[in-house]
Design a protein around this nucleic acid. Sequence first.
DNA 1: GTTAGCCAGTACATCGATATACTAAGCCCA
DNA 2: TGGGCTTAGTATATCGATGTACTGGCTAAC
Lengths: 337, 337
Amino acid sequence: MTTLKVVASRAGVSIATAARVLQGDPTLSVRPATRERVMAAANDLGYRPNRVASGLRTRRTGTIALVLPDPQNVAWGETLRGVERAAAGREYVVVVADAHGPTLSAQQLDRFVLEGRMDGLLVAFATIVDELVAQIAGRGLPLVPINSRSTIVDGSVTMDDEAGSRLAVDHLVQLGHRRIGFLAGRADTDVGRRREAGYRAAMATHDLRVDEAWIGAGDFTERRARESADRLLAWSARERPTAIYAVNLPSALGVRAAARALHLRIPDDLSLVTMDDHALLEHMDPALTAVRMPMEEMGALGARMLIDAVEGAPISHVRTSSPPELVIRLSSGPPSA
Amino acid sequence: MTTLKVVASRAGVSIATAARVLQGDPTLSVRPATRERVMAAANDLGYRPNRVASGLRTRRTGTIALVLPDPQNVAWGETLRGVERAAAGREYVVVVADAHGPTLSAQQLDRFVLEGRMDGLLVAFATIVDELVAQIAGRGLPLVPINSRSTIVDGSVTMDDEAGSRLAVDHLVQLGHRRIGFLAGRADTDVGRRREAGYRAAMATHDLRVDEAWIGAGDFTERRARESADRLLAWSARERPTAIYAVNLPSALGVRAAARALHLRIPDDLSLVTMDDHALLEHMDPALTAVRMPMEEMGALGARMLIDAVEGAPISHVRTSSPPELVIRLSSGPPSA
DNA sequence: GTTAGCCAGTACATCGATATACTAAGCCCA
DNA sequence: TGGGCTTAGTATATCGATGTACTGGCTAAC
């Protein structure tokens, strides 16, 4: 392994000079020829600074963590890609942490934060009040919530969830639906609230009543959605909603499973629209109509904001600029008579 | 942030003693009372060793990378989980690297390997001859291929792919199929070869002829599978295969899409069985019959082997112990007359 | 009464890069 | 001719943990 020492001796300069040349220290003055010698030596030897050593001195490891509540949810794939691309552009490495639920385990907190391995955290779960966020922020580690905001830290990146919900509801209304249900997310999350608020606002815009019985409690998981949908769809055909908008993909799959079990055909007996798109939805039975959210952009913006913060820049609330889009497939259609 | 220095001074001992007590150095002799004082101080102060500093000295960062050719393929989710669990059990952190194809980019090689951030690599792509593997192994970095073997490095973890293929073929034969096609993976990969070999061996066992025209060239992607399947299914109903076994999930989706486009019904006109299972397959149109491979176990074994190697243990070829299982869903049925 | 040996620790160099403080040589101007 | 300034670098402490080599005090055996 080539160290700075080797580069310096080959170039016939001190370690300090080699370091400063390679880093482009503007306060250093060197003859062009010397600079060239250092560059050439580094190049010939394939020198790469050891990030562990430099991390010790600079307190910067060039690593950020992306904390996900449920990495098995395929919708995060895009976000991860966005994060990784943005991070790679700045020479950062990304670690994905599975929070196994709404918060980091103590062991994870140790490994990621307390041991100084990470420069910052991109957190996708952030229930609104979270002692963990406080603890991390309190240690001075930059933390950027994505897909939700926190009252505790400054920055965050969110998508236009209200617009997304509106798109779903507008689409169903245009198809002729009036009894439109909602399969909700966790009420203690910012994103869950905003998607629900968007749904209610859109319904209001169309002068449509929202029956609280049409709203299924959920927590973003398929299992919980399935339970709620079982109840929600048990009503008679004239009482139950003719369409359901689900807060995320696992929730939509729960609704689909419940409809199947009750022998309700989609979209004939029930239209289904989900938030979060994915290529696999094309292959589903039926292919699911979805609101495509800018998940990748959110990841990229979040990573950039976090890295900026790590490098000392201020932080602020940002919203993705790409608007949500509706991808119409086969799970939504006109209500049957 | 609590450092060893603080712990030592609080316990009234030297840094060296504090370090050796906390690490359980057996060559150190201390009075129980002193040991207690150190432990108590560390505990009170919530001391956690800084992994960057210790990594500099020990040349061990406690980080491994999992390199995937195509992280968007949902089948890797399980593997990642297995890797992460095994790694967490040994206090290691996992970085997922997207190889964007069959090899690491130069930039990734820099970031992961040359900068000394990783203790080892778990590599899932490994085409059989790979100058990259040679380069990494040549630098002395432990590297364990999973899902394939390499002639260049010693260890590896693979699944029983032959048995998996046999399961798929046996199932189709039992349903009454005789013209069973195969949508292949890359021929220059170990796993692609073994799955194909398993298919051919199983066909031979049943005294079934393999027509080379039934074998679609593939590279594990949906796009390529789609192209091959378009050609493969263009034959007349008496010539084309009545069933296809696909080498992995994206390939199966490609076949499905091609069948759709040709208005072939699954399973009535064409049975489809895929390697790699996932909960989402239950929701597909039609729900896909699949061979469930022990992907999580492979990940866990790989991670353990890699970490053993990092810590100096020898390395060997290992095969997962859990046998593949067939999950019968709706995409496979008897051939139509 | 001396010395070997053990107990209970300590001092210090080290990993590799970085950042601050410093210096030697040369030049200019008074 | 000497003081100051610029140029072109260098010396060294530092980040925090680790590990080897060492030491002072005490006991026990001869």
